[in-house]
Design a protein around this nucleic acid. Structure first.
Length: 934
RNA sequence: UGGGCUGUAGCUCAGCGGGAGAGCACUACCUUGACACGGUAGGGGUCGUUGGUUCAAUCCCAAUCAGCCCAACCA
């Protein structure tokens, strides 16, 4: 990278793209299949975004978090693999392409073109074309985020290798009896024309109705049963879906429900249809709800299906896959479900079966992709037998082999895994992995194989008589294999040996069941080991009002817009700071702007350093002989306290950042960086440094060394969070060393001058210095007290203040003398005269006092300010002291506190009381004198 | 109906047994030689409510109110 002069301010657009290209061109992101001896390996597989998707805030969050962890580990010298790739996203992608096709023209019948008009082969060709056109979009967007993904290993769920893995898994599970084909009740989306898994149906609140329908009761012979008053007996049933009545095959009551004891064994006549239905008893029926009688439609309700199996009821399918009533529906056949409902209700009313209609709020299952009402229907589908796979996946979490963070999600995981139903994996789509099963036209047997079989497994009929299953697999089937299929499985590759199990899985809690649980099951089953040891679940990104971002609400904050406006680094930092939060991240543009200001601050701090090397400031400085780091260590006890202080504070920051990253508390780490950089380094250290720099000579050189050292360490420390700006600034620094990384040696790549491969800072105990911290904190107290005095009295910073000082001890006197120049520089004290302790104050004098070390500063107000404001300031101070005193006094007057609280605490409180009292006495005297002046 | 989360300054959130913190917003002053994407000073909170444990509770426990999420649903 060519060093160049830094611009006036932080302008991310001017360098982000070229920096990413520099890294990529020099293969900085690449991992080695084989780690160097002694080198740790660290691997995260990206949760594959939809291949045709666009980057949204959720992607921005997860990829920021992952990139931070990856860059941190990489800088620590690990062989670090962050594996990129995309998901073919069956339904989502197919729907997109179908829409595009529909817009292109009409078919022979004058309807918009559909996939059926194109035919399977042509349509799939179209999807591939679409994928090729759109697929690079998300990739480029990830690059804009600064994601250090190893692009040389990019995978796609439908590429050749992964498809082979899918077939391998399918065949093996089939052979083990864990995949089977069967006729079951499943969720069906009439619009997408496919089966859905339980997870793909979203129960949604809907306002509906409760139709109360009377079913006439008859006896064995079909004669009407009469009530006591000789009216015909009728059983009243309430339903929210009257059209399913056509498929009723029984009516159920609770066996102990006294209202219906006399009806046991009787039958009812199904209104409009005339079919006789048995009245059965089952404890599943809730006596309290509705009339206590329940119509049973085994073909179109999951509970009824189970109940039907228990009571051996016939199954009548009346709702077809095409969204219309089947021939079983008699006169209603061919109507759409919603039309059938209206027609049926009308008929019921006409024939006096409908007693009443109530409003009723309930939940309706909607298709996750298209929001159409999904209907339970009976259909022949492929299923994965889950229980045997779930068992070890549950155990892995129970034993702690796999840990969730936050831990509370483990409960959710167990809850679901323990109640899991078999997974319906076949989809009546065209885009996806076609099921590797072939049906024989002569014996109707099924042959399951990785490649098209040459003959039927059962009757040996030739391959020409075999026809492959038309269906494809659920997208999540291939995603479940992601942690090992992407590393080359089913081949036994070196990459698998090095990187499986992967180190961390970072994803959203919304796909624990869709993805995480299934990877656990498949990983354990096929690899004999868990796919990852730690599962980090991040929060959902919402808008500033806490609402889910969605296109329809128009509240989407587009990460790319933010990156273009403010840069990738501010966005990343914002997300990192917010990553620690519970379940929701409320993102506001204000925050991003705030962290842009932070980047600018750091930018200018670096510029400040550069300015000190200009001719006017004394010219360039040579790198210390033996290197900067050595110089810092050798001189660490010789330097002025301010330098020792910032070096010490830096070590504490390194500690916080490192432990924050280790504990996955990115917010703690990011906040420590922010706080140190702005409040300690910029606000104090740079201000301290100005005096030394002005002094010139040795003092100047020392300061330049320390500035350079802290800046360098800070850039390394911040790099995982803000890779672009730190690299840009680091490249501008003098005395850079080549970055040597074991992975590059493994790959046969040369060393390179880049921050991203510099070592991550390690806290040096030797540079931690409590004494320097105490001293500087005293300087800060004094400076702040003077600023407060000026502020409250509205004294211009230009006015110098003459001061008498009185040191309460010899060390205090020495301290002041040592730091006088600095204090004077920062407080703009004019004349300073020492007075002996006990010297009486003069009229018109106010006072600034600190306790440690004991120092007081007397300021003559005459000719400086009107005493009124100062009286207010001192009054406020006395007030505060009084409150403090009362508080401590209360505490110390409690016998129980004195006897039961730790002795050290009691002592501390006593000392504090004495200190406050002495200060209060002094300040009250000051106040009295000031008031006397008026 | 279960399971879980949240309630702290106007806003967004840290803190989680020894006198309440940050950022943004707000007020006043300052264009000082890194930075006005800046500096300095300041105002602002009985830490949802009520009990309990403790010498001491924003923090632990219980109840309660409010909001949210997940899972299962009563047809």
């Amino acid at each position: 990278m060519v060093p160049h002069e830094l611009g006036k301010s932080f302008e991310p657009q001017t360098f982000e793209t070229s920096i990413y290209e520099f890294w990529e061109k020099n293969r900085c992101f690449e991992a080695s299949d084989q780690s160097a001896p002694g080198q740790e390996s660290f691997c995260i597989v990206i949760p594959p975004p939809n291949v045709t998707g666009v980057l949204h805030m959720g992607h921005a969050l997860t990829n920021t978090i992952q990139d931070i962890l990856i860059r941190w580990k990489r800088m620590h010298g690990d062989n670090t693999l962050w594996l990129p790739g995309t998901d073919h996203a069956g339904i989502a992608t197919q729907t997109q392409v179908e829409k595009a096709v529909a817009k292109e023209g009409k078919n022979a019948a004058g309807r918009p073109m559909s996939r059926h008009d194109l035919g399977r082969e042509k349509f799939i060709e179209r999807v591939w074309k679409w994928k090729d056109e759109q697929g690079s979009q998300i990739k480029n967007q990830l690059k804009k985020m600064g994601s250090s993904l190893d692009w040389s290993r990019e995978r796609f769920t439908m590429d050749e290798g992964l498809s082979a893995a899918v077939r391998e898994v399918f065949v093996r599970l089939y052979q083990e009896g864990l995949i089977y084909r069967g006729e079951r009740i499943i969720n069906w989306c009439p619009r997408c024309q496919t089966a859905l898994s339980d997870l793909e149906v979203v129960p949604t609140d809907r306002k509906g109705h409760f139709w109360h329908i009377a079913y006439p009761v008859v006896d064995e012979q079909g004669n009407p049963v009469l009530n006591a008053d000789q009216t015909p007996a009728r059983l009243v049933i309430a339903t929210t879906r009257p059209e399913t009545l056509l498929g009723d095959t029984a009516v159920a009551v609770h066996p102990e429900d006294e209202r219906y004891l006399h009806l046991h064994g009787k039958k009812v006549v199904l209104p409009l249809v005339g079919r006789y239905l048995p009245i059965i008893t089952d404890t599943y029926v809730d006596r309290e709800f509705g009339s206590g009688a329940l119509k049973i439609t085994p073909a179109h309700d999951f509970n009824d299906y189970e109940l039907g199996k228990r009571h051996d009821l016939p199954v009548v399918s009346v709702m077809g896959k095409d969204g219309r009533i089947t021939a079983e529906g008699g006169e209603f056949a061919g109507l759409k479900f919603i039309e059938a409902r209206e027609a049926l209700v009308q008929k019921l009313q006409e024939q006096d079966f409908l007693l009443r209609v109530e409003d009723h709020a309930h939940k309706v299952g909607l298709c996750q992709r298209c929001d159409a009402v999904a209907e339970p229907i009976i259909s022949k589908q492929w299923f994965v037998k889950i229980a045997p796979l779930a068992e070890p996946a549950i155990a892995a979490v129970q034993t702690g082999q796999v840990e969730f963070s936050p831990k509370t999600w483990e409960k959710t995981y167990f809850e679901w895994m323990n109640n899991i139903r078999d997974w319906c994996i076949s989809r009546q789509l065209w885009w996806g992995h076609q099921i590797p099963a072939w049906y024989c036209s002569s014996c109707e047997g099924v042959t399951v194989a990785k490649t098209a079989p040459e003959k039927c497994d059962h009757c040996q009929a030739p391959g020409s008589q075999l026809k492959q299953d038309e269906d494809v697999l659920d997208t999540w089937f291939s995603s479940a294999l992601w942690p090992f299929s992407t590393l080359g499985w089913p081949n036994s590759t070196q990459a698998l040996k090095t990187f499986y199990p992967t180190s961390i899985l970072e994803t959203g809690f919304d796909i624990i069941f869709f993805w995480v649980a299934r990877m656990m099951m498949m990983g354990i089953h096929f690899m004999g080991d868990v796919p990852f040891n730690k599962i980090y679940l991040h929060a959902m990104v919402r808008d500033e009002k806490g609402e889910k971002m969605s296109k329809s609400k128009g509240n989407v904050i587009d990460p790319l817009t933010l990156i273009n406006q403010h840069g990738a680094d501010p966005l990343r930092f914002t997300l990192a700071v917010m990553a620690g939060q519970g379940r929701d991240i409320k993102l506001s543009v204000d925050r991003v702007e705030g962290y842009r200001a932070f980047c600018n601050k750091f930018w200018n701090a670096t510029k400040f350093f550069h300015l000190q090397l200009e001719e006017a400031q004394g010219g360039p400085v040579a790198e210390p002989v033996g290197g900067l780091k050595n110089w810092i260590f050798e001189n660490r006890r010789e330097l002025p306290a301010q330098h020792q202080w910032i070096l010490s504070r830096l070590q504490r920051t390194i500690q916080t950042v490192e432990s924050g990253l280790e504990k996955f508390e990115l917010n703690v780490a990011a906040q420590a960086l922010y706080q140190f950089t702005w409040q300690e380094f910029c606000d104090w250290y740079i201000e301290f440094s100005k005096l030394f720099l002005r002094e010139g000579g040795e003092r100047r050189v020392q300061t330049i060394y320390v500035l350079r050292y802290v800046l360098g360490e800070l850039m390394q420390l911040m790099h995982p969070f803000m890779p672009f700006v730190t690299e840009e600034l680091w490249q501008s620094l003098p005395w850079k060393s080549l970055s040597s990384h074991p992975t590059r040696k493994q790959l046969g790549l040369p060393d390179l001058t880049t921050l991203m491969l510099q070592p991550f800072p390690v806290a040096q105990e030797d540079l931690i210095n409590d004494e320097a911290e105490r001293m500087v904190s005293a300087i800060q107290l004094i400076v702040e007290a003077f600023r407060n005095f000026r502020g409250e009295n509205s004294i211009s910073p230009k006015v110098e203040i003459d001061v008498k000082y009185c040191a309460g001890s010899a060390p205090a006197d020495a301290f002041l003398k040592m730091h006088l120049a600095q204090i004077r520089f920062m407080t703009r004290i004019g004349k300073l005269i020492a007075v002996a302790p006990g010297t009486p104050e003069e009229g018109g004098e106010s006072m600034i006092r600190i306790s440690n070390p004991p120092l007081e500063f007397r300021i003559q107000l005459k000719g400086l300010v009107n005493a009124d404001e100062e009286v207010k300031r001192v009054e406020k101070e006395v007030e505060k002291l009084n409150a403090d005193l009362e508080f401590v006094g209360n505490k110390l007057s409690q016998e129980t506190f004195l006897s039961r609280a730790p002795a050290a605490l009691v002592e501390k409180e006593k000392a504090r009381q004495a200190e406050i009292l002495s200060k209060k006495t002094e300040m009250e005297k000051v106040l009295a004198r000031l008031k006397a002046l008026k």
